[in-house]
Design a protein around this nucleic acid. Structure first.
Lengths: 319, 319
DNA sequence: GTGAAAGCGCTAACAA
DNA sequence: TTGTTAGCGCTTTCAC
């Protein structure tokens, strides 16, 4: 790797190491010196050691992203948004997958907090207090989670839920089952808060926010008089779709199904899933800009708009 | 947050910084001292500065993972395998998503190459020569791609394809369509090499290795007398399933569909997809071990077994 | 077994 | 404009 150091370049160029440093990082040097040094550096294939540089500047040029599960397409898209923006601003991205483990999350936060310029944290379920205790407000931005005192980028979940409900009601549905997510999940509580006040909505038991969770919710949904189901997220909706198909229940003829998040799977399901689109990719890039101070101020709470994407899984109720 | 240094720990523990270092990195220290220092370090929330450590040890404790697209569940799973193993051996992981762009891949390789101890590279489509030129054989491990002269971890694609074909033939199929992937893809060439020699197989035009690619392949497949389709991968198979459903073609009654990779979507499709399971998670962890020299030798070519997972999308041909 | 001191490669004062 | 001199936080000789 980069064996050549500033010393080598300095010696070869007949100048001091500080002059080399200045010539290469845009300090005050004569044009001729700068050119000469740059030429030598290029010839020697000099690559600055970023660790050494970071040690003194205090900035590493890296940042961290912590997610509970990369296999979850939602977080994969967020990660993609982060890495894309990071590449544009020449930052490196450490990614830690905590595997939904709070301990791993805490460790990642500690390690990354120390070795990066900031961290983007996706923590759907850790208690506010834990987050407040483990995260430095100055160098942490929460993604898809809001905690007072910390910067965050969230989607307008309430509005998304309302759009979904309005859509179903406009279609004629008057009994809408809601299959919720984990009670300790921030996003699940957000959804519930909106839905609790809607008379047409029938709240069912919460399930795991997974395909399996959706599978298990199939029969309970059928046990209700609902003509439509709103699922916690697309994965749950997919599980629902699967179980309903297995029971010979036609979607959307007998019952409509609506998901949330609009992950890419939503368009691939059978039938294609009506879902509330959340700007996942964008949340990553916006979060990164917030972290780097390119936009907003520390402590800021960004809210990104959501929008309903209507596909074939929702239609008028059976007459 | 990460303000505490060895100095702080040393002062608090009443020992020298060198003793702290030894106690924490497994040097020669008395058991009592070690325990005391570790306790203090934990209490102070001490996190070693990896940059400083790397400066002296010459090792960064970080490695890189380059993937073409994190949203592709295949690579998301590989990434998960890498991060999981990295966490176990206390390594940080830089992830670069190149967005299928060869230039971005080159840049990522250069940047990561000099800021990490090694790079795991997923490059399905770059020419061998480009890879050989850009990658340092001593610090690079290819994942799901084999290039002479570079270490790699690949799945036994040939065997997987053979299992799939044998399965279909055993069911009674005698006309099997194959919807292939990009001709410049290493994995696609591997599959083709096996399939070319099989009389029962009908080679169709290659498509993009995506859901959309599969959609487009639906009608061409129906234009053949095939009673079964083997798709380049699960995403293509899903697209196929989707288009076939839209055409009112029953799967597997009228035609069987088999995918490849066995990504999680395969189990969620309708009908659930028979697919060749590739050890994605494992490839990541094995690749990491190979990179860190915990297993095998540089230049090694690891081959991981594949296995057919039979689900509802494949059955006997129509009689 | 432990401490003092010497750097790793680099940048940022401070002089000159 | 340039060189000299401190370190950044850590590990690692070398004494003791």
């Amino acid at each position: 790797m980069g064996r050549t150091t500033v010393q080598d370049v300095a010696r070869e160029a007949g100048v001091s190491v500080s002059t080399v440093s200045r010539a290469l990082t845009g300090g005050t040097v004569s044009a001729s010196t700068r050119e000469a040094v740059q030429a030598i550096a290029a010839r020697l294939g000099y690559q600055p050691n970023r660790a050494a540089r970071g040690l003194i500047t205090g900035r590493t040029g890296n940042l961290g992203l912590i997610v509970p599960d990369l296999r979850n397409p939602f977080f994969a898209e967020v990660a993609k948004g982060v890495t894309a923006r990071a590449r544009a601003v020449d930052y490196g991205v450490f990614i830690a997958d905590t595997d939904e483990d709070p301990v791993a999350e805490r460790e990642a936060l500690a390690s990354l907090g120390r070795n990066t310029d900031g961290v983007l944290l996706c923590s759907p379920r850790s208690p506010d207090a834990d987050l407040l205790k483990a995260a430095d407000p100055a160098t942490t931005v929460l993604l898809h989670r809001r905690v007072p005192g910390l910067s965050s980028v969230v989607a307008d979940i309430s509005d998304g839920i309302r759009q979904a409900v309005r859509h179903l009601i406009a279609l004629g549905h008057r009994r809408i089952a809601y299959v919720g997510g984990p009670e300790d999940s921030w996003a699940a509580r957000q959804r519930l808060a909106v839905l609790s006040g809607v008379p047409e909505v029938l709240l069912l038991d919460a399930v795991a926010p997974t395909f399996e969770g959706g599978l298990g919710a199939g029969d309970p949904v059928l046990a209700t008089p609902a003509t439509a189901v709103l699922a916690y997220n697309d994965l749950v909706a997919l599980g629902l779709l699967h179980r309903l198909a297995a029971r010979g229940v036609a979607v959307p003829e007998r019952i409509s199904v609506v998901g949330f998040d609009d992950v890419s799977l939503a368009a691939m399901s059978h039938p294609p899933l009506t879902s509330v689109a959340v700007p996942k990719h964008r949340s990553g890039s916006v979060g990164l800009d917030l972290l780097l101070g390119r936009t907003g101020a520390p402590g800021d709470q960004m809210i990104l708009p959501t929008s309903l994407v209507v596909r074939a899984s929702s239609d008028v109720p059976p007459s």
